[in-house]
Each structure stands twice: as structure tokens, then as C-alpha cells.
Design a protein around this nucleic acid. Structure first.
Lengths: 99, 99
DNA sequence: AATATATATCGGTTTTTTCCGATATACCTA
DNA sequence: TAGGTATATCGGAAAAAACCGATATATATT
């Protein structure tokens, strides 16, 4: 994934919000507390919070994943997304040098 | 200028290249060496290097400027653009915290 | 097997971005 | 003032992104 595509992934208000929410799932996705956040947050919870349709949010999560900013884990019928902190850190390091 | 718009400004290969070239004008814009780089690099030099049309490059520089990434200085018939290092630094600091 | 739930994918409409050529504006020089 | 050069702006065609609803797929449950 090249730099331009990473910036494109970040060029959308909703996607930036999702990334931000995923920094603190306990606070931002209270409904999921019962099942815990070990694997991240499932699509449905994120979708509800954005107010956009399921298909749109699914696509947005795919964009973030292709950019390497989040990772996905399928568990049963759910797909959980979480930030890929290592990748984000690496990206920041790179941007700090290159920009 | 909000975060999304800054990322949008960075979501284009040519604009990223321009930003990168402007880090080292002496190396990247040899033709302008005679007049020096005190005020930055003039549009024509940048345009030549991109291979795009004059109007496109002018618009791209305006996008970078609106994002606060470069500043412009008119001198005679020329407009010189240069990186706004302070703004870029501030942006990086913010991204490092918020992303 | 049948039904239900969660997510992904597909096809389409609308909006935005990319890039162009033509033209306008600003400045410089004779 | 007239003509030349540098840049900005305008109008538009083509490509990409932002969404959506409908449908497909995967898993779970009965």
C-alpha cells in the first residue's frame, strides 16, 4: 500500500472517526462491553455509531484495512476490527521523516 | 482547515512529490539556482518537473497552500512557493497525537 | 434442512477530484 | 501604450469516491 492510498484512506471524516473511536472501545462502544474487546469491535457496533448504512461501513472498514490501519478477525458470525497500532506507529514514523 | 482537508491535499502523488521536492530546492530545481531560493521555487519550475499543465500545477499549489502546507510569495511576475515548515511540524505533532 | 443474524459484495446514482485548454490578470519592458 | 511572460481562474470531460439498496455468503440455531 503506498503513501497516497494511506492518505486517501484518511481523507474521510467517518473513517477518521472510526479510527479514533477504536482507540478506546470501552468508552466508545459500551454496548459491546459484555462480550469484551479482545478482538476489537464488530461491524454492527461501528455501523450504528456512524449512522451510515451497513454496506457503506463495511466498505470503509475494508478501505482502512487495505491501508493497513486496522486488522480484522472473524469470530463466529462477527467480524471484529481493531487498530493495527504497530502499523500506525510505523506509518507515523515514516510520515515524520518523509513529509 | 480541518484534518480531512489536509489529508485530501496529501492524497495525490504529484502534490506529495512537490512537497518532497521543495525540501531540497537546490538539488531538485537546478535551473533556478542562478536566482536563488530565498523565496522558494517559482511555479514554472515546478510545472516543468511535474510534466502536467500550467493550470493544473497552479491549482495543486493552491490546494497545498489552502491546506497550510506551503506559502506563496509574489516577486515581480513570479510566484514562489515554499514549504511552511512550522505548519508542517505542527501538523505532524497533531497527527502523532490524534492518529 | 430451514431460518435467522452478521458481514461482504454488486450495481447504480450523485458528488468530488483530476486534469485539460482557453482565457483573464498581473507585471515587466520597450 | 503595446507586447511579452508568469500565474491564476474558469468551464468542462473523464475518472474516482461516497453513499445507497439489494443480494450473496458465512455462520449459528433449531
Amino acid at each position: 500500500m503506498d503513501q497516497v492510498d494511506i492518505f486517501k484512506a484518511l481523507s474521510n471524516k467517518t473513517r477518521l472517526q472510526i479510527l479514533s473511536w477504536l482507540k478506546d472501545p470501552e468508552t466508545n462502544f459500551v454496548e459491546q462491553s459484555a462480550m469484551g474487546f479482545e478482538n476489537g469491535v464488530c461491524v454492527g457496533q461501528i455501523q450504528k455509531k456512524t449512522g451510515l448504512t451497513q454496506s457503506t461501513v463495511s466498505e470503509y472498514l475494508a478501505v482502512l484495512q487495505r491501508a493497513g490501519l486496522v486488522s480484522a478477525a472473524r469470530v463466529g458470525q462477527w467480524t471484529y476490527y481493531r487498530r493495527d497500532e504497530a502499523a500506525i506507529k510505523a506509518l507515523l514514523a515514516r510520515i515524520n521523516i518523509e513529509l
